[in-house]
Design a protein around this nucleic acid. Sequence first.
DNA 1: ATCAGAGTACTCGATGCCGAGTAGCGCTTC
DNA 2: GAAGCGCTACTCGGCATCGAGTACTCTGAT
Lengths: 219, 219
Amino acid sequence: MARRNRNNPLALAVLMCLAERPMHPYEIATTLRRRHKDESVKLNYGSLYSVVCSLERRGLIVAHDTERHGRLPERTVYRPTAAGRLEAHEWLAEILSVPLKEYPAFEAALSFLPGMAPDDAIALLEQRASRLEVALAQARAGREMLEERGLPRLLLVESEFENELRAAELAFVRRLLDDISSGSLDGYDWWQAIHRGDGSPVPAPFDEAHWLAANGNAA
Amino acid sequence: MARRNRNNPLALAVLMCLAERPMHPYEIATTLRRRHKDESVKLNYGSLYSVVCSLERRGLIVAHDTERHGRLPERTVYRPTAAGRLEAHEWLAEILSVPLKEYPAFEAALSFLPGMAPDDAIALLEQRASRLEVALAQARAGREMLEERGLPRLLLVESEFENELRAAELAFVRRLLDDISSGSLDGYDWWQAIHRGDGSPVPAPFDEAHWLAANGNAA
DNA sequence: ATCAGAGTACTCGATGCCGAGTAGCGCTTC
DNA sequence: GAAGCGCTACTCGGCATCGAGTACTCTGAT
């Protein structure tokens, strides 16, 4: 049995589709597109065929039938094996039950914030805040429309989740902006100093002493 | 000029390190480790050498010197070029100012929630909630310790951000759990029905009609 | 009859990434 | 003095991924 590989969510999407009924790859793609899964799941249809192929190699799906429409190329219809159904269930269970640390780009950028002048940071964060507001408003409007058309909330939880995270992020950015602009962020003086560049004696950027003193021998 | 490639955050971390002073690759790795950057940035030290090599090919860093300690292999010390400094600044600016959609695994799993029996979902989400609580408490304790040791808040913003997102996620999960357990989640009856499996006439799982009615011709 | 254009159903080569592996160094310990 | 051990400083093969490209079909208009 090939080792399990649970990092490409397209594979999970394929398994979930096939759990409903056998399909050929292109049908999987259109189904996912029609359901707007690409808004909540990272899907790259270019890798669809390699993913399907890998699932087959690992014994999670098997060719079920082949069909042909007109003179278009023959299509292979796949269905999940017992192992495939099990894998889909366990994978889903794992994602739901154990929170995974996922390194958003913004978190990385925040950790490099001292490398950029405070005034630049303020301007950029301001932009982010207003873009977040726009996106939030759009998403809310979109969800309301779908709800009016009778889509049950059960099928919208993922977008609800996304929006709540976005709202929390916006609140964070706004507060951070306040703290920087008012100069009340602890460490602001040092930050200013290392970016003044007027030749005054300032600690080296990212002064190691800070970390060493702070982290000490804390393993 | 090679096309820009801004998807591996390790490259950004390398550029930020070299912006402080020239280093050799291994020194970059230890610096990043010492500063616990691997907690906020997705770093895989196995790809360090290929990333450095790619930065050099793209003209963003250049070999600055080579040195040798004892009989250990020779090490190449790199420094950023002007283009490299610019790229680091622009990259950072882009991440800070434009929010990027990032597909957390949990969001994907939520969108497949109807594929799993409601009772299973409840048990799994319960687990996630308590794990989130533990992680939150630990992270808070860790941050307090660092603050007591004099680390300024400026250097902790990224962990603050992470915690606030986690807290928002916990709130969401708790609320979702309430809504499912009490049966007040819109769509719950259908969800129950398709997973009863007692042969009663139920709509097909993921009934297409739902989506079609809902999405209509909304492009 | 044929032509444009939209959509269908893939294909492919270059690049990137991962993480296990490893050889040498120098400190300690007996 | 040599064996063990943890650290240093990389290396490498294989797999996944990406996204642009392609060739083909069908529909409708001229």
